[in-house]
Design a protein around this nucleic acid. Structure first.
Length: 589
RNA sequence: GGGGACGUAGCUCAAUUGGUUAGAGUACCAGAUUGUCGAUCUGGGUGUUGCGGGUUCGAGUCCCGUCGUCCCCGCCA
C-alpha cells in the first residue's frame, strides 16, 4: 500500500499518528517559508504543511508542485489551534506536517478549472473531451457513487424478494417495429447482421417460459434515435419480469423498490402505495401521459358551461362533439405579448384555430378578446370552475380532446415553469395505468403503444374486431416529476392471442413466423402467466441527484450527435476490417 | 428531417452605429512572501475572434455557406 489513510478521513483523534497520503494537488499556497498543499482524493481534502525546518528537500519539491500533480507524502498529523480550524472541511481540525514528498506524476495545466463551482460553467464538449478530468470533480464523483448506491440497493431489494439476475445477449436480432436498431455485421455469416438490444424484452419473457420465475437485470439497452437531455443511445434499465402475478403485484413490488432506492439515495421516502391514475385521467387532467404532479394548474373541462353559448366558437365546438377546456395559469396575467404570441404559435402547430385567454387585471376586471360574448352566468361558472382571482391568466382551447389535451398539457408545463410554482425539492411519483393497447400510425393502421406482447385488458377483448383503438392494455408507467421513469405490462401468454395480436397489427403471416415464430412456439410449450417492468436507471439517478441531464450521471456519455468526444467514436475503420465483414461503403463523400 | 440558442485568451465573459493597438476576471509564467485555506503583493498577454467565402475604405460586429455544442419538435414498439 502506498498510503496509510485517505485524504478525507483524518480527524483530531489521529493527532500524533505518522501517516502516508496519496492524491492530487488541489491547490498550493506558497508563503515563502511555509507551503500549504491541499491534497485531494475521492474521499476528501487534507491540508499538508511543508516547513523548511522539517525538511529542506521536501520543501524544495513541494515548491515545484503544480495543480493536479500526483504526490505521495509522509508526515505527522497535528491538531490545528482553535483559530486555524477550517470549518468548511471535514478534515479542517487537523493538518499533516510533511517530512517527505514524492512526485508520482506531473500534470499539464488542466484545460478547464476542476473545482465544482467553476467547472459547472465550462462548455460541456470540453468536459466530455477530457471526461477523466471532469470526473475528478467531487460533484461528479458523488454522482457516480450515488448511482452505485442506488444499483446496490436495487440488487439487494430484488435479492431479498427472490429474484435471480440473468445476463441476456448483447448480440441479438433486429426488431424493426421498435426504435431504429444498432446493427453489427456478422463475419462468419456474410450478409447478415446482429442488432444490439433495444431492451431484453423477448429474452426475459423466454426466461419466464424457462421457469425462472423472478428475473432482474441491470441491462444495457441501445436505440439509434435522436438524443435529448434524458435520452442517450445506450442507457441502462432495471429490467424485471415475474411469473404467476397480476398487475397489482408488479406495482406493489416497484413501490417497495422505489422506497428502498429513495432511502439509499438519501431522499425522502414516499409514503406507499404510490398514487395511481388512469391514462384517460392523466390526459384529461394534465394533458400528458407523464404528468408533473409537483404543481396544480390542472385542466378543467368547460364544455358543459359553453354548451349553447352565445360565443359561437366554443358553442360550436361542443356541438360538434369537441371539448372546451382551460387551465388557470395563476399569477401570470402579466406575461408579455411576446410569450402569448409564442403560445399561440404552439396552438396553431397543434392544429387548433388559436388560443383564447383572459388576463385578470389588478382591479379584478377581465381583459380578453372573448369575454364580451360571455353571459353573466357563464362568467360566474367560469370563475367557480377555475378559481379565477386577480393576477390569473386563463388559457382556453377548443377542439378535439386529444389536440386540446396535448396543447394545454404543454402550456401547463411552460406556465408552471414561468410562474416558478414547480418545487425542486419535491418528489411527486405517480403510476399511470390502463394505457391504450394501440395507437394509430401515420398511415392509418395500428401499432402497439407499448409493445406487441402486451396483454389487452380481458374486458375489452371483444373490441378487437369492432373498435380496437378503444382497447385498454394491462400496461402501466411509473412517472416522477413529469419524467417517465419506466413502464411495463402483463404479457400475452396464450399463443392464439399473441397470433391475433400480430394479425391486428397487420403483420403478414409469413413475417410473423419469421420474426416471432420462436416466441409463439415458446408460448405453446406451457408458458406461465407473466409480466414485468423496466425502469430507466439513468433518469432515476438523474432525479435522485438533482441533475438536469442523464449525461451528468453517466461516466462516459455521448453528445447530441451520438459521438464520444473523448474516444472520438464512431470512427472510420480500415479497408481490411470492412472486407472481413463483407461491407462495402457506398455513397459516402 | 425541422425550429431555436451559442461559438472572441487555457477557462468564463466584454468589446457603442461596422472604426485607433480586441479588453476584464481567473488560470498560467517569473519574483517576493513563515499560518494560509478562493492566500496575498509586484510584474508579464499567452489571440487563426470555430472554419471558408462575400459586402465594405475598414468586419469580432453585416450576408452566404460550413463545422461543432446545447435545448425543443418530429422520432424514441
Amino acid at each position: 500500500m502506498m498510503r496509510s489513510h485517505t485524504c478525507g478521513e483524518l480527524r483530531p483523534t489521529h493527532a500524533g499518528h505518522h501517516v502516508e497520503l496519496c492524491g492530487w494537488v488541489d491547490t498550493v499556497r506558497d508563503h515563502g517559508g511555509l507551503i500549504f498543499i491541499d491534497l485531494r482524493d475521492r474521499h476528501g481534502l487534507a491540508q499538508v504543511v511543508f516547513d523548511p525546518r522539517d525538511s529542506q528537500e521536501a520543501w524544495d519539491t513541494a515548491q515545484a508542485t503544480r495543480s493536479e500533480y500526483v504526490i505521495r507524502i509522509a508526515g505527522v498529523v497535528e491538531p490545528r489551534p482553535a483559530d486555524m480550524v477550517n470549518a468548511k472541511l471535514p478534515t479542517g481540525g487537523i493538518e499533516v506536517r510533511a517530512s517527505r514528498i514524492q512526485v508520482l506524476n506531473r500534470s499539464q495545466t488542466p484545460p478547464f478549472p476542476l473545482d465544482d463551482e467553476e467547472a459547472g460553467k465550462v462548455a460541456e464538449d470540453l468536459r466530455l473531451t477530457y471526461r477523466y478530468l471532469d470526473l475528478r470533480r467531487p460533484l461528479m464523483q458523488q454522482r457516480l457513487a450515488k448511482r452505485h448506491a442506488i444499483v446496490l440497493a436495487a440488487r439487494r431489494y430484488f435479492d431479498r424478494h427472490g429474484f435471480v439476475e440473468v445476463e441476456t445477449p448483447i448480440l441479438t436480432k433486429s426488431t424493426p417495429e421498435g426504435a431504429r436498431d444498432y446493427l453489427v455485421p456478422s463475419r462468419v455469416c456474410p450478409g447478415t447482421f446482429f442488432a444490439l438490444p433495444q431492451a431484453p424484452q423477448q429474452y426475459k419473457q423466454l426466461l419466464m417460459m424457462a421457469g425462472l420465475d423472478r428475473y432482474v437485470q441491470i441491462a444495457r439497452c441501445f436505440r439509434d434515435e435522436d438524443l435529448r437531455a434524458d435520452r442517450q443511445p445506450e442507457f441502462t434499465q432495471i429490467d424485471v419480469e415475474m411469473s404467476f402475478i397480476e398487475q397489482e403485484d408488479i406495482l406493489t413490488l416497484v413501490d417497495g423498490l422505489v422506497a428502498s432506492i429513495c432511502e439509499a439515495a438519501g431522499r425522502p421516502v414516499p409514503s406507499l402505495p404510490l398514487p395511481r391514475m388512469t391514462y384517460a385521467e392523466a390526459m384529461s387532467r394534465y394533458g400528458s401521459d407523464k404528468p408533473d404532479l409537483r404543481f396544480g394548474m390542472e385542466i378543467s373541462d368547460l364544455s358543459a358551461i359553453f354548451r349553447g353559448s352565445a360565443f359561437k366558437v366554443f358553442a360550436g365546438a361542443v356541438e360538434k362533439g369537441n371539448v372546451v377546456k382551460a387551465i388557470n395559469a395563476k399569477g401570470l396575467a402579466g406575461v408579455p405579448i411576446r410569450v402569448m404570441d409564442e403560445w399561440t404559435v404552439l396552438a396553431k402547430d397543434a392544429g387548433l384555430a388559436g388560443l383564447a385567454f383572459i388576463r385578470v387585471q389588478d382591479d379584478g376586471t377581465w381583459k380578453s378578446p372573448i369575454v364580451k360574448f360571455f353571459s353573466d352566468a357563464e362568467k360566474e361558472a367560469l370563475r367557480a370552475a377555475l378559481d379565477i382571482r386577480v393576477g390569473d391568466l386563463v388559457l382556453f382551447a377548443a377542439d378535439a380532446p386529444d389536440r386540446v389535451h396535448t396543447l394545454l398539457g404543454r402550456l401547463r408545463l411552460l406556465a408552471g415553469g414561468m410562474a416558478g410554482v414547480v418545487k425542486d425539492d419535491t418528489f411527486a411519483f405517480t403510476w399511470v395505468t390502463d394505457f391504450p393497447l394501440f395507437e394509430k400510425t401515420e398511415e392509418g393502421g395500428l401499432q402497439s403503444m407499448h409493445h406487441p406482447f402486451t396483454s389487452p385488458n380481458p374486458e375489452d377483448l371483444p373490441l378487437l374486431d369492432s373498435d380496437p383503438a378503444k382497447i385498454r392494455a394491462r400496461a402501466y408507467d411509473i412517472v416522477l416529476n413529469g419524467v417517465e421513469l419506466g413502464g411495463g405490462s402483463i404479457r400475452i401468454h396464450d399463443p392464439a392471442v399473441q397470433q391475433r395480436m400480430f394479425q391486428a397489427l397487420g403483420i403478414p403471416d409469413a413475417e410473423i413466423e419469421d420474426r416471432f415464430g420462436h416466441l409463439i412456439r415458446a408460448l405453446s410449450f406451457g408458458a406461465p402467466p407473466h409480466g414485468g417492468i423496466a425502469l430507466g436507471l439513468d433518469r432515476l439517478v438523474m432525479l435522485m441527484v438533482g441533475a438536469t441531464s442523464i449525461r451528468d450521471v453517466i461516466a462516459f456519455p455521448k453528445t447530441q450527435k451520438a459521438m464520444d468526444l473523448m474516444m472520438n467514436a464512431p470512427a472510420a475503420v480500415d479497408a481490411r476490417q470492412l472486407r472481413d465483414i463483407h461491407i462495402r461503403l457506398a455513397g459516402i463523400e
